[in-house]
Amino acid sequence: MENHTNQLIVKGINEGLMLILPDGEWEVVCSDIKERINSQSTFFKGADVYIDVASRDLRVSEIADLRDLFGSFEIRMRGLLSFSEITQKNAKSLGLDISMPQKRIKKGKKPDALNPNEGSAFLVQKNVRSGIRIEKEESIVIVGDVNPGAEIISCGSVFVWGKIKGKITAGANGNEQAVVGALFIENSQISIAGIMRIFTKQSQNSNGSAPLILKIQNGEIVADNIKS
């Protein structure tokens, strides 16, 4: 999501157009949108649009009205991006996307987004407790412990700045380049690209407190100290 501004911004994106809405009265914003589309109706016609409303809380009726407004110009409103949980929930109930569609994975080509050593990661800054499941396409970084009964699943790599005591799945789509890093590994089940290894408190390597990195080597998961 983009920085918030005080004027309506229209950007071209892969999926169509992105409209970043300004702050201020909702009715004023809607009439701004209408004016903008009216002045460039051929440009907008037939487009798929995604709307970014930052932290604004929108009711179901407001979102539906917005969708109808676009509909009247033959524009498809595909998604509504927001930080607001209320808006997200309401948008979801109307069948709108609340995040950008994931990039399609092209056959025979490894997209950069899935290179576990690059790109952005999902950051979790608390202990992941029993019964919580975090599932992401991107790599995941946890600052805290992964407690027994918690599950972390990523297509990329998983790094735990704390103790792993729960279940970790990295390279969930079969990416053997994915790695799992942790300060400590206690009783846990860790898999990378479908290869699983069970750790017990005792199987922690004898170097004690050095952070560990797990990767696939010759078809099995091996543990190594992180080299500086």
């Binding site: 407790r129 029993s130 019964g131 919580i132 407690n147 027994p148 009964g149």
Partner: peptide
């Protein structure tokens, strides 16, 4: 373990 779940 159950307490952890509840706290979550």
């Amino acid at each position: 373990r159950d307490a952890d779940r509840i706290i979550g």
